[in-house]
Amino acid sequence: MTTLQLQNIVKRFKSHTVLDDLSLEVASGETLVLFGPSGAGKSVLLRLVAGVIEPDKGNVLIDGEDMSDVEPEHRGIGMAFQNFALFPHMDAFQNIATPLEASRSSADKIKEGVARVAKLLRIDHVLTHRPKALSNGQKQRTALARALVGSPPLLLLDDPLRNVDAKLRFEMRLELPRLLAAQGATVVYVTQDYKEAMALGDRIAVMAAGRIRQVGTPEEIYDAPAFIEIARLFGDPTINLLDVAPTAAAGGVAVELSGVRIPLPGIPAAEAVGRDCLIGLRPESLAFVAAGTAGAIPVTIEAETPLNEKTVSLVLTTDGREVLVSRPAGTPAPASGPAHIAVDGTNALLFDKETGRRIARMGEDAGERGEAA
């Protein structure tokens, strides 16, 4: 079993700082997903761990050993690069087999190992093809198979499902966790797809501008994002963010939406009252209710869009603010005109508008909200 520690990593290219005093720990056998927008530094971080590039400052430790003087081939790492990095003169079988050949495995073990991962990744029918004859999806899976075939203790996967079709991507989200768990590897997995991050990660590290902004379980990141920018990255449709002015209330604070007072229990008044804030409402946490229901907010339905398993409604509050409401497909609700929605204040998020930081509820510890940078 293998652990990975990154200590105060700094990486610059000329005057541009790509990784800025970044620290991170990955536990033995854990799958940690690095998630963030393009340019956040995710791929650079993987190459640095692999030893392809060196940090300007900081240390990479694998099982507690500093890797500063250890060459890439001696770090015990398997890696699938975003740009495939396949040998053009070799067929798919030979590309996949390279880690086994480097470890001097027998011909039978090489054949067995390649056949196993190729079948899993559904490329066993193209093993005799060279990269130029493969589709981008087949190239991506060949690169992933090469990373997996030697059962390395540490796996670095750089967006390995980016170029596969939607059906296979969905299936691999189900298959990969089982495969990785069976191998017992410690995995760092890069993606820009929040659904993939939530499906594959034991924990997610959200990156932005070369820094880790928050680390937590998928549930912690989604339910308790540390910053507005993180809340926006997770969810489809995106979270509703509305300007509010919190006032003190019994057991917390309250805000007004369309003239209706909404209690937010557990939010400390000292942290929120007197500040410009944004309330964050996940579309699926809102519901259409009958007029006269306690706390019902009057709205006007402007549009309704069916999205397979759910239906999303765009509504306007009485003061003209747009709100998205999501419900399971087939759930009865008005399609247009006047309506009312209910807000569950216990699920609402409150952010300081100036800093973007979420205001935590009383009694909420770091484990519940994830580690915020």
Score class of each variant (00 low, 15 high):
Arg12Tyr: 08
Phe13Ile: 14
Thr17Val: 15
Val18Asn: 13
Asp20Lys: 13
Leu24Pro: 04
Glu25His: 15
Val26Trp: 07
Gly29Tyr: 10
Gly29Asn: 14
Gly36Asp: 12
Arg47Cys: 11
Leu61Ala: 10
Gly64Gln: 09
Met67Glu: 01
Val70Arg: 08
Gly78Val: 06
Phe84Leu: 05
His89Pro: 12
Asp91Ala: 01
Phe93Ser: 00
Gln94Ser: 09
Thr98Leu: 13
Leu100Pro: 01
Glu101Asn: 13
Arg104Val: 06
Ile110Asn: 03
Glu112Tyr: 01
Gly113Ala: 04
Val114Arg: 00
Lys119Thr: 14
His125Asp: 07
His125Lys: 09
Ser135Leu: 13
Gly137Tyr: 02
Lys139Asp: 07
Thr142Asn: 01
Arg146Ala: 00
Pro152Asn: 06
Pro153Leu: 10
Leu154Met: 07
Leu157Gly: 01
Glu171Thr: 10
Met172Gln: 12
Pro177Asn: 00
Ala181Gly: 00
Ala182Tyr: 02
Val188Phe: 12
Gln192Asp: 13
Asp193Gly: 14
Tyr194Gly: 00
Leu200Ser: 06
Arg203Ala: 02
Ala205Trp: 06
Ala205Gln: 10
Ala208Leu: 01
Ile212Thr: 15
Arg213Thr: 01
Glu219Val: 10
Phe234Leu: 04
Pro237Tyr: 07
Ile239Phe: 02
Asp243Arg: 04
Ala245Asn: 12
Pro246Met: 01
Ala248His: 09
Ala248Trp: 08
Glu256Lys: 12
Arg275Tyr: 03
Cys277His: 07
Leu278Glu: 06
Glu284Gln: 13
Val289Met: 09
Ile297Asn: 06
Lys310Trp: 15
Thr311Ala: 15
Leu314Asn: 01
Leu316Lys: 13
Val325Asp: 03
Pro328Phe: 09
Ala333Pro: 03
Ala335Trp: 02
Gly337Arg: 11
Ile341Ser: 07
Ala342His: 04
Thr346Trp: 04
Asn347Thr: 14
Leu350His: 07
Leu350Gln: 03
Lys353Phe: 06
Lys353Ala: 15
Lys353Tyr: 05
Ile359Thr: 02
Gly363Pro: 12
Gly370Met: 04
Ala373Lys: 05
